[in-house]
Design a protein around this nucleic acid. Sequence first.
DNA 1: GATGCCGGGGC
DNA 2: GCCCCGGCATC
Length: 490
Amino acid sequence: MDNRYILEQTSVGTRVGGADFNYRPGRSVLCDTRVPTAEKNGPMPVYTHGPVFYKLLMDGGSVSGVKGERTSPKGNGRILHEVEKTGLGEQKDTGSSGILKRASPTHCPGTNGQSPGVFMHLDIRNPGKQAELANNFRAAQEWIIPPSEIQPLPSSHIPVPRNRKPSGHADKEVMAATVLTSLSTSPLCSTLPLLHQSQSQAAGLGRRANFPLLTPGDDVNEDVPESTHFMFEDPIPRKRKNSMKVMFKCLWKNCEKVLSTSSGIQRHVRTVHLGRNTDSDYSDGEEDFYYSEIEINMDSLTEGLSSLTPTSPTTCGPPPVFPPPLTAVPHSERINMNSSHCPTPTLLSQSAPSTLCHIRTDHAYQATAPVRIPLGPELAGLGNGNGTRPGHGNGISVSWQSPHVLFKGVLGPVIQVRTVSIGEKRQPAAITHSTVIKNHALVTPAPKSAPGTRKPRGEAKKCRKVYGMEKRDMWCTACRWKKACQRFTD
DNA sequence: GATGCCGGGGC
DNA sequence: GCCCCGGCATC
């Protein structure tokens, strides 16, 4: 079964419970939808609530309760999509019961990225919203806990009007709008979306293992005080640092799209994933659930880049990222997300390695040691092609010079009669083993001489010594430039 | 003093 | 980037 469907199933149940923003005591949607579904869900025994409800829908059965919310006459695939949307939509709903989400991170299956922010921005100073919060919390609580186990939520933290009159559909929309509006500005919303991300990236069973509290028998009462603590005592700064840049990451499966604007990511989701008309700006807000807001600490990013030395062992191919450097925030989920995305190239990951490879190649005559092989005089002419001066760099008669150095780069069948001439350009074909060695040395933590110290003078004779001042034109370029000799390296 | 080459500057 | 050179460390 599609992994996504697992999530959908879990989410759906949440939605069913949470869809009714104004939870009415006595109504337990969960119980209504709790159906023995072993044969329907196959190897997915855990989430038998809500999901089953939708499974029936997917099978083409008539489920009036669902159809009232979202009836899809389309094919199965589309229905699945609808279900997924519904499941995601749940975020909006459960967002109103954010306490539960914050209190119980293990409930994150239903938080496909957005609800945390929702939660953050619930204005608890508003008595009406407090009531809304409490009611929805109880609703969500009942969704998880069998009615018999539900304990009255103490109102010591929140003054909750017990007999709150259910509000109408307009209130739902207002709440939803509030929730959606808050998504893009919440400083705290990054945690759960990312958690969801990491979960959604885990396949199959691994995903389910992330939210054990969704199992029917689990008791979530312990989370209640924790939740209130989280909500009222946790001094998470609400103000985002200036260095924090908000990006929007597409949550669609296998889609790593990250855009800097919400409109952009919405357009992306709408057009790419939802198949909506590109030209149409109409949006029912559905795409809001398919992307999450992520924060990028630009300072950390900068630091990460600046500290990105050739010796950095942390560059797992793709470095941090946006990654570790990207990990702007101390949320482990974020780190996990980054690490889990290691195989996926990010902007940094794409650029950094190449950067590493090209670091300090500014002086090519230093980076690339010429490979010269002893050649007989009969082959002397082969090397003259590159020479710009007569008699220079014919690549011969050097067998008397440090042969161990001269040969170390010639391994292939093609004899690299490499001449070192003025204005010589490094050619790919001229890349030699010694070059590789040098580049590799840039990546490995080679002991670098401290500033001000010179490397000891090599044993090998240099061009000056070999050719003498009178044949200066035969020197290697480096020697002529008074640089480290590239011909007779040590 | 000769040599090697780093650092820097001119173009 | 190419080319050159002052200047310093090393031999």
